[in-house]
Write a protein that binds this DNA or RNA. Structure first.
Ligand SMILES: [Mg+2]
Length: 326
DNA sequence: GCGACAG
DNA sequence: ATCTTGTCGC
C-alpha cells in the first residue's frame, strides 16, 4: 500500500499573514514589496506580494503605503498612481515626481509576524535529508501527475501508463486552492491536490512503480522540489519533470533531440536538461528512490511524438479537461 | 533597459 | 498556472 491515507500537509494561511503585515504600516510611513516579502520569510516572494496587493483580497488595506524599492510609488490597485501619490502626500509622505523622497526617511520595516516561509524552508531542509538517490526499481507501470486550476479550485489528474507510454486508466481530484505560487514553495500549492488524487487512485486499485511529477525533484535550492517532497512523505519512487528551469546552470545551445546535459547547482549535478523536441527542453531530476541517469532514461523512453513524456502529457490534458468542466 | 525563479 | 485566434518563428 502507498499509505497516503492519513498523510496530510499543513498549509499556512500566507494571505492572512500578508494582510496582517500590511496593516502594520503606520500612516505617514511606507514600505516596499521586498520588505513585506522578507517579513513573510523570503525576499523571493516579492512578486507574490505585488500580485496579491494588486488583487481583490487587498481591498480595505493601506496598499498605497507599499512602494518600489527604488522609491517609485509604482502601481495602485484601487486607482491611478497619481491617486496613490496624493494619498501618501495627505499622510505627510513627500512625493517628488513619482518618487517617495527620501525613501529612508519614511521607510517602515519593523514588522511583527511569524515569518511563515522561513518555517516552510525549515521543513524542507529537514525532509530533504530523507531523500534517497538511487537507481529506479524495475518499471512496469508509470503514473503522471499534473494540476490545473479554475476559480480557486485545483484539479489534479493521475494517469497510469504502461512502460511503453500506453495510457491505462486515470483519476482526478479537486481541492480548494490554499496557497499561492511562490518559487521554491510549489509543494504547498500543489501537493494537497496530488495527495487527494493518489488517495483516489489507491481506492481504485491504481498503482505505479514510479510517479512522474510536473515540477522538480532535487533540482531545487534546498534539493526538495515537489517531486522529492511527495516521494519522501509517501516513500514512493518519483521523478521531477519541469518545463522550465528553476535554478542551476546549464548551456542548452545546440542540443539535439534525445540529448541531455547536467544542470549544476552549487557544484552539484542536480538534474538534466533534456531535449525532447525540436524546440523543447525539459528539466528532469530525481525525486526520491531515483537517480539522474535512470530518471532521464525513463523520461526519454516515455516520449513519443509529443515533447512531454506520455504520462505527463495525459495528466496535463485530463487535469485541464476536468478543470474546464468545473 | 536588462535580467528573470517549477506551476 | 490563466486569459485566448490566428500567427510568426525555430
Ligand atoms: Mg502543472
Amino acid at each position: 500500500m502507498v499509505g497516503v491515507v492519513g498523510i496530510e500537509l499543513h498549509v499556512p494561511d500566507i494571505e492572512r499573514e500578508l494582510a496582517e503585515l500590511v496593516r502594520q504600516i503606520p500612516r505617514g510611513r511606507v514600505t516596499t514589496y521586498r520588505a513585506l516579502a522578507e517579513a513573510l520569510g523570503d525576499p523571493g516572494a516579492a512578486r507574490f506580494v505585488g500580485e496579491w496587493l494588486m488583487g481583490p483580497g487587498a481591498e480595505g488595506l493601506p496598499v498605497h503605503r507599499v512602494v518600489h524599492a527604488s522609491g517609485d510609488v509604482g502601481r495602485f490597485a484601487f486607482g491611478t498612481w497619481e491617486e496613490k501619490a496624493n494619498l501618501l502626500s495627505a499622510e505627510g509622505v513627500q512625493v517628488v515626481g513619482r518618487r517617495v523622497s527620501p525613501l529612508p526617511r519614511y521607510f517602515f520595516w519593523d514588522f511583527k509576524g511569524s515569518r511563515p516561509l522561513a518555517a516552510l524552508r525549515a521543513e524542507q531542509e529537514e525532509l530533504s535529508r530523507k531523500a534517497i538517490i538511487s537507481p529506479l526499481p524495475p518499471v512496469e507501470r508509470v503514473a503522471g501527475l499534473d494540476v490545473a486550476y479554475r476559480d480557486g479550485v485545483a484539479v489534479a489528474a493521475l494517469v497510469l501508463c504502461e512502460k511503453d507510454g500506453e495510457a491505462l486508466d486515470f483519476v482526478t481530484a479537486e481541492v480548494p486552492v490554499r496557497f499561492p505560487y511562490i518559487p521554491t514553495y510549489l509543494t504547498w500549492r500543489e501537493l494537497p491536490c496530488y495527495l487527494a488524487a493518489i488517495r483516489k487512485a489507491e481506492e481504485a486499485g491504481l498503482r505505479a512503480d514510479v510517479y512522474l511529477v510536473d515540477g522538480n525533484g532535487i533540482l531545487h535550492p534546498r534539493r526538495i522540489g515537489i517531486a522529492t517532497h511527495l516521494g519522501v512523505i509517501l516513500d514512493l519512487p518519483t521523478v521531477g519533470v519541469a518545463k522550465r528551469r528553476l535554478c542551476g546552470e546549464v548551456n542548452t545551445e545546440g542540443m539535439v533531440v534525445g540529448e541531455w546535459r547536467p544542470v549544476v547547482l552549487e557544484g552539484d549535478t542536480v538534474g538534466a536538461a533534456v531535449r525532447t523536441g525540436r524546440n523543447r527542453t525539459l528539466f528532469v531530476s530525481p525525486g526520491h528512490r531515483a537517480d539522474l541517469e535512470s530518471s532521464v532514461e525513463l523520461t526519454l523512453s516515455l516520449v513519443r511524438e509529443h515533447p512531454l513524456p506520455e504520462p505527463l502529457r495525459w495528466a496535463h490534458e485530463l487535469a485541464g479537461e476536468a478543470a474546464s468542466l468545473f
